[in-house]
C-alpha cells in the first residue's frame, strides 16, 4: 500500500521526465505495461483504494465481532467508536458484516471472471484459429447467447438454479449466483479472442511456426494467446465490477445471495426499508459497491491504456 502511494507521488513529480523515457525503453513487455499503467492517475488511485479494500477484507478475520451471531441487546445502533458503521436489526456489527460481505461479493466477481475465461477464451480461440464451419457454429452459438435478453434470462436462471439441486453445488449459494452471471457474460471475451486470433493467425510468424511443424495447440497457446492477454485483462477487470453490480441487482429482486451470508448486494437491498431511520445500514454497503466498482473501472481504463501502444504514442506525440 505504502509502495503504491510512494509511486503515485513519484509519478506526479516526474510526469515530464517519464515521457522522454517512454521513447526509448527496450525492456520486457510487462515492465512497459506497468510503467504506462503508473502514468494513469485514476488507475493508480483506483489500485490504492481497491488495495485497501482487499486488505481490510482480509484483515476482518481479526474483527472482535462475528458477522452472523446476533447481539439483541445492541440492535440498530448508530455509528460509534465501538461500531464504526453501526449495528443491524440483530445487533451485529455492520462494519464486520460489510467486510465479510466484500469477501462474498469479490468472490462472486472473481468466479464470474473465471467462468467467463474458461468458456470464452477456448470458444474464441478455436473459432478464430480454425475458422470455417467450426467458426460458424461457435459464433452462431455466441450470437444466440448474445440475443438473449440478459436481465430477463438472469432472473429466470437465478430463480431456477437456486431451487434445483445441482451436482457439487449446494442450493442457492455463492457459486450458483456466479455461475448464472458467468453463463450470461462469456460472449464478449469469446468475440474479442476470436477477432484477435483471426488477425494474428495470418501473420508471418505464425506461418513460420506452422512450417517448422509446431502443433496447432502449441501455436494457439504459446504464440497467439500472449498477444491477446491485454484485452482479456481489461475485459476481466471490468467483468469483476459488472458481476458485483449484477449481484446487488439480483439481491434487490430477491434472487441474490441469501442471508445470513452477507454480500454487498443483500446488505444494501435489506437496508432499503431502513433508509430514513437507520441510514447507516444503507450508506456503507452502498459506498463499498461504489468505491470498488469505480476503482475497478479506473484500473480497467489504466490497463487498457497501458496495453495500447497507439494511445501512448498519441499522448507523447501530442504534447
Amino acid at each position: 500500500m505504502t509502495k503504491d502511494q510512494v509511486e503515485a507521488g513519484q509519478k506526479e513529480q516526474n510526469s515530464v521526465s517519464v515521457r522522454s523515457e517512454e521513447m526509448h525503453a527496450p525492456e520486457g513487455m510487462l515492465g512497459m505495461v506497468w510503467r504506462r499503467f503508473r502514468l494513469h492517475p485514476g488507475a493508480v488511485a483506483g489500485s490504492i483504494v481497491l488495495g485497501m479494500l482487499v486488505l481490510s477484507i482480509i484483515l476482518v478475520t481479526f474483527s472482535p465481532y462475528d458477522p452472523e451471531i446476533s447481539d439483541i441487546g445492541s440492535r440498530l445502533q448508530p455509528p460509534s467508536w465501538e461500531h464504526p458503521f453501526g449495528t443491524d436489526p440483530l445487533g451485529r456489527d455492520v462494519l464486520t458484516r460489510v467486510l465479510y460481505g466484500g469477501r462474498i461479493s469479490l468472490a462472486v466477481g472473481l468466479m464470474v471472471v473465471a467462468i467467463t475465461l474458461v468458456i470464452g477464451v477456448p470458444v474464441g480461440a478455436v473459432a478464430g484459429y480454425f475458422g470455417g464451419w467450426v467458426d460458424n457454429v461457435l459464433m452462431r452459438i455466441t450470437d444466440a447467447a448474445l440475443s438473449l435478453p440478459s436481465l430477463l434470462v438472469l432472473i429466470l436462471l437465478s430463480a431456477i438454479l437456486r431451487e434445483v439441486e445441482l451436482p457439487f453445488v449446494e442450493r442457492n449459494n455463492v457459486v450458483t449466483i456466479a455461475v448464472v452471471i458467468g453463463l450470461l457474460s462469456w460472449m464478449t471475451v469469446a468475440r474479442l479472442v476470436r477477432a484477435a486470433f483471426l488477425a494474428i493467425r495470418e501473420l508471418d510468424f505464425i506461418t513460420a511456426a506452422h512450417c517448422v511443424g509446431v502443433s496447432n495447440s502449441r501455436i494457439m497457446v504459446r504464440h497467439i494467446l500472449p498477444n491477446v492477454v491485454g484485452p482479456i485483462i481489461v475485459e476481466s477487470t471490468l467483468e469483476v465490477g459488472y458481476a458485483i453490480m449484477e449481484e446487488s441487482g439480483l439481491s434487490f429482486l430477491g434472487f441474490g445471495i441469501q442471508p445470513p451470508t452477507p454480500s454487498w448486494g443483500n446488505l444494501l437491498s435489506n437496508a432499503q426499508e431502513h433508509m430514513t431511520k437507520h441510514p447507516w445500514l444503507a450508506i456503507f454497503p452502498g459506498l463499498m459497491i461504489f468505491l470498488s466498482i469505480i476503482s475497478i473501472n479506473y484500473i480497467g481504463d489504466g490497463v487498457r491504456d497501458a496495453f495500447d501502444p497507439y494511445k501512448v504514442l498519441k499522448q507523447v506525440g501530442e504534447v
Binding site: M245, F252, S269
Partner: peptide, 13 residues
C-alpha cells in the same frame, strides 16, 4: 466513472 458505479436501484431510492 461515478455514474457507472452507482447501483441503479440505489440511485432510484
Amino acid at each position: 466513472f461515478m455514474g457507472q458505479a452507482i447501483p441503479e436501484f440505489w440511485l432510484g431510492l
